[in-house]
Structures are given as structure tokens and as C-alpha cells.
Design a protein around this nucleic acid. Structure first.
Lengths: 335, 335
DNA sequence: GCGTGACGTCGAAGCGCTTCGACGGGCGAA
DNA sequence: TTCGCCCGTCGAAGCGCTTCGACGTCACGC
């Protein structure tokens, strides 16, 4: 193994000079720096991560806690993880993968052993049990999602409340008067997962504000469940003309079910969704949707952490405004 | 920060004794060990990961390289990753997440800086460009999938060739004489991804062996593509009664398309798939399938690495035998 | 009764890097 | 010309842990 002293010897300087040439924390003359760089290249030198972490008390590793519970849409989680890794690398950091399963103990372990410098936590619940721990940890963390009490924590997410509102407003503007929300599976609400609740709030508030009749229907995944919800909607709300879907796997089967029940989309029924753009685009009838910007959230989350690691202050709450893209699945009511 | 000397002081022993009590690498009297453990608990001591890595030249971290290219089925990747993390934790290791994107340089970096002790590489191609690097690395690695030349490398995967054979054999046993394989998107073959190729080989070999007429059709994802493939199959092979699907996202749309074209499954057409069990079970007509045992592969991959890190020899190739589960989508030809 | 091990513990020497204080030389200001 | 300062570099002191060799003690066998 080639070490920093080997490089120093070859470049004819001291080890500390090599270190400073690498980190840039002290001025080094152009000439020396070039000699050092050449030596590094010639010897294929790589600083030892552990030694670095020990001496500098910085591991340059971020922890990412991913959820694996029922009702989470996997591609979104994956896309998010990839975006975190990619962004972390831009800042010269790596990412350690933790599962929800490990719980508090896992977070405490990687933080206390100085394995990681900071943490990113996904799938936050309103009353998340990890909050006290995260508050007490001496390392910065960013949560994806908003607990009810976010004081002292850095959080970021799509503004799901606004997303629910935007969907309703869009339908209202098109003249729809009776709307329904097809939501996530029941267990997601039971767990009080923050984002699902907020969509409901936004949806209901916007409907009330515009004087629309509205109902909310949690929905299991799978075509069977989609079919049942569709039938139930038509039975209970015969005047229904606008639907908001916040449940990725059910979106396509639901539209299928409506059409099989004799309703054309968007002729008889306008459908909007809160889901990743790729999904909205790939449905047979491209769906007007509010994008789920997982990549952007991941990127911003890492950047928030980097700023905190750099000692900067960051806003506690970052709410990304919803962006609605009109596609083929919505139309004026009288069209 | 509480360190090992603090623990030592409190327990009235030397630091090395604490270390040995923790690692068990030298005998420690019951009594002393209990005192040390008490001190650790009382002080909330956690060994510093970097210091440990430096002193022992073991980081207790594994690198996992995940693919993010088109045509990969995301839930499978995710399930695999989770199983790797879970198993690694059982062996007191953590997992560093790398993306394919980082390429050779990423692998070399984490290996050479001693950030990780070993590597797991997914989505191996027949002529994978990373092979020379992996061979030259001083750290053990396990590949998920088989390149054409696996000499000197540890590989593990489902036996995809046998999986293709098992599907055909099942159809042949049911009396089907004309079969088709609906495969992964074309780019997967162009990249010469190992597992896709092997399914084709097994499928074709088994069909030839049993004297079945057979064709192979790469297929894009999405309902449109499924529909087009279905139409094409019926046009080109009117006598077709058996289909093998090796393309997760297309499975359900394809069955829909067949039924819309007037073919009942399994009445007119028997369908078998190579896909995760959950998917096969969740289709409207539960599909007879060969399971994709991602969790098991992940677990075994980690265990292979652990044995290699422990200095044991392991077999270069581990092929998991296919396991076919009969469900509702296949029936005798004359039924 | 003494040599021989095994057992249990200690001290010291690193592991490879960062960082702090110091120091010599050059230069601008007085 | 001299003082002071900044630039560029060096040496030494750790960072917190593991591991090696050594040492005292005790039990056992002859």
C-alpha cells in the first residue's frame, strides 16, 4: 500500500505538504503542487479512508434510511436513493444504506461510531418515533417529509397539501362539481404517514373552498381493488366527474376499470394524479398530474446536509411547490 | 466523546483488555469481562469506526453496485438491495451504495481507499468491462450474474438457462407444441446482459429437444408494446398455445392484450413467466412462474463474501436451481 | 519440588492521515 | 535600511483503536 509519506518522499516534500496540496487548506506553490500531483499519479496513491476519518473526524459518508414498508411505491424510493448517491458524490461523499428495519438503534450506531457525518431519513410519519433521537444526535440530519412537530429538524418534501389543492383547483376550473380522491392503501393512513394525510387535507380544503362535493377513498393496490373502488364511486356518487389519484400502482388499473364500466376518460370522467411524471406519461391515456420530484428532493436533501456540515444555517422547512402538467386525461366538464 | 481508555479506566483495566473483551480474540476472565461490559453500558461507549478501520485494516463495510439502466425491473433491484443490507448487518457489516454510473473508477476508489472490505456487483454483462478490474482488485467481490468468462471470479445467480428450460418443459408436458418467448426489451440483449441471453438459450434448447416450434420476441415495456407483440404473435404463429414471459412490466398488459384479442388464458393460451412470485400472484389470472429469488440471491451473495473475508474458499459459481410454481395461467392443451 | 504451559492482563508500538505551531525568506512600508 | 508580515513549508503531536510481545500466576505432571 502506498501512503502519504511515499508520495512526500517522491515529490521531495514533507507529508504535511502533500496533505495541504490535496486539501487546499493552506497555500502551496504552483510548482510544489504539480510535483505532488505527479508523484500521486505515478504511485497511484489513494488516501486511506479510515485514517482520514480518524484524523479529521470526518468520514465523508452520509447515511440514507430507506423505507421498505407496504404501500411505498418502490420506483420512487429507488429514484430518490439514486439521486442522493449521485448528488453526494458531487460533494465527495458516499452513501451508506440503512433499512427502516434497523430503527433507532441503527441510526444511533452509525452516528455514534462516526461511521457517517450526517443522515437522511425517508418516509417520515407525523408522529415519527425517531424524532427525539434525531434531535439529540450530534450530527445533522434531513428528513424527507414533515412530522407534525418539525421544530429543530430540517425537513424537505413536495408540498403535498398544495398538490392536493392544485389537482382540485384544476378540476374546478374545468367545471367539475363532484370530485373524489382515490388515495393510498389504508395502512398508510393508519401509520399516519405525513404526505398521505396532507394530500387529503389539501384535497378537502380546496373542494370546500370551491364548493365542490368531495369524498376520499383509501385504496389497496392491485387491479381488483381498483375495480371495486371504481364501482363504489359510481354507485355512491353518480354525478362524479373528477377524480384525483394518489396511488401509483392503482392509476392505470383504475382508468381501465372506469372504461370497462362505460366511462370514457376524459369524456365522462377527468382524472388527475399525484405521481412520477414517467408513470403519468406511460398510461394509455396520459394523465394530467402533479409530479413527484423524487430526484429533486434527493438532490436538495443532500445539498441541505452539505450546507449544514459546512456550518451554514439552513431553513428548517423546504416545501417544493407542486407543478401540474396537463395531459390527455382531463377535459372541461361540458366537453 | 467517550473512548476506549475511558472505559478502561472505569473498569480498572487497560485499554487492550477492553479491546480483547470486545473482540474475544484473547481469553478474558468472566469477572473482568462483566466489569468491562458494565463500564461500556454506563458510559455509552461506541468504538470509533475510523480508528477501528485504521488499526485493524477492516472497515466492516461492503460496497453494493446497483444498476439503474433501462430495462431493469426496479422492485427486484430494491428487494435485492434490502436483502443484502439485512444479511450484511447480521454479520456486523454495513453497506455502501454505489451506482453503475460511477463505473470502474467508483469501484477502484472505494476499494483502494479501504472504504470497503469487499464488493457486490449487480447486472453483470457477458463481456462486462469491469471484469479485469474486479480480478485485479485486492479485495474479494461477488457478482450477481455470470459473464462469459467467470474464471477467477465468484458469481451467483438464478440458473436462468434452466429457468427457460423448466418453463418450456412444463408447457411441453401439458401438450403444447408451438411456443413463444416474450423477452426483455431489445437494449437488454444488445448490452448482452447475461441472464436475458441465458433464458433464450434455455428456452430454445428445451423447445428443440422436445420438438416444439418456437420463436423469441424481445419486447419493450408498456401496454402499447405488449399489444403489438400479442398481435404479431397471433399473426405469425396462429397455432401458438404456449407463451413464456420474461419481462415483468409487460406480463399483465400482455395477458390483457391476449384476452382482448379473444384468447382466454389458460383456455386458449397457457402463459408462464420468470418473475418475482409477488408479481405472478398479483396478476388477475395468477401466473405459473419460475420465481426470481432476489432475496435469496442477496443473502447468499453476502454469505459468500463473508466466507471469503474469513479466508475460506468458496465455489466460483453458484447457480440457484429454478423453482416453478403452478398457478392458474397454464392448462393442458386439450383442456 | 521444579519445569512447563495455559491463562489473563498490561504496555507500547503502530495504523495513515490531518493539523497546529513554528520558521525561514522575500517583500512592502516606514 | 530595518521592521513586520505573509507565503510556503516542515516537524511533531495526536486521532482512537488493535495487536504483539512480555510477564506474572496458577495448576499440573513428573
Amino acid at each position: 500500500m502506498v501512503k502519504i509519506t511515499d508520495v512526500a518522499k517522491r515529490a521531495g516534500v514533507s507529508a504535511s505538504t502533500v496533505s495541504y496540496a490535496l486539501s487546499g487548506k493552506r497555500p502551496i506553490s504552483e510548482e510544489t503542487r504539480l510535483r505532488v500531483e505527479a508523484a500521486i499519479r505515478e504511485l497511484g496513491y489513494r488516501p486511506h479512508a479510515g485514517a482520514r476519518a480518524l484524523a479529521s473526524s470526518k468520514s465523508n459518508v452520509l447515511a440514507l434510511v430507506v423505507p421498505l414498508r407496504a404501500g411505498m411505491h418502490v420506483p420512487v424510493v429507488m429514484q430518490f436513493a439514486v439521486s442522493v448517491v449521485t448528488t453526494a458524490r458531487k460533494h465527495d461523499h458516499d452513501v451508506l444504506l440503512l433499512t427502516q428495519e434497523e430503527g433507532d438503534e441503527g441510526l444511533r450506531r452509525v452516528a455514534d461510531t462516526a461511521l457517517v457525518d450526517a443522515l437522511i431519513v425517508m418516509d417520515v410519519q407525523l408522529d415519527d418515533p425517531r424524532l427525539p433521537l434525531l434531535r439529540s444526535l450530534e450530527r445533522p440530519s434531513v428528513m424527507i417529509g414533515f412530522p407534525s412537530d418539525a421544530a429543530g429538524l430540517t425537513c424537505i418534501d413536495l408540498d403535498f397539501r398544495a398538490a392536493g389543492e392544485v389537482c382540485v383547483d384544476h378540476l374546478a376550473r374545468l367545471g367539475h362539481r363532484v370530485v373524489a380522491l382515490v388515495g393510498s392503501p389504508p395502512e398508510v393512513y393508519v401509520r399516519r404517514t405525513a404526505f398521505a394525510q396532507r394530500v387529503v387535507q389539501g384535497f378537502t380544503a380546496a373542494a370546500d373552498r370551491s364548493g365542490l362535493a368531495s369524498t376520499v377513498h383509501p385504496c389497496e393496490t392491485g387491479p381488483g381493488a381498483a375495480r371495486r373502488v371504481a364501482e363504489r364511486l359510481l354507485r355512491e356518487q353518480p354525478a362524479l366527474t373528477g377524480v384525483v389519484v394518489h396511488n401509483e400502482p392503482v392509476l392505470e388499473p383504475l382508468i381501465d376499470a372506469f372504461e370497462q364500466l362505460g366511462l370514457r376518460v376524459p369524456g365522462d370522467l377527468s382524472v388527475t394524479a399525484i405521481c412520477p411524471d414517467e408513470l403519468a406519461e406511460s398510461v394509455r391515456v396520459p394523465v394530467t398530474s402533479v409530479a413527484l420530484p423524487s430526484a429533486e428532493v434527493g438532490e436538495r436533501a443532500v445539498e441541505l446536509l452539505m450546507r449544514r456540515l459546512g456550518g451554514d444555517d439552513v431553513p428548517e422547512a423546504t416545501l417544493l411547490p407542486p407543478r401540474l402538467t396537463e395531459r390527455a386525461s382531463t377535459a372541461p366538464r361540458d366537453a
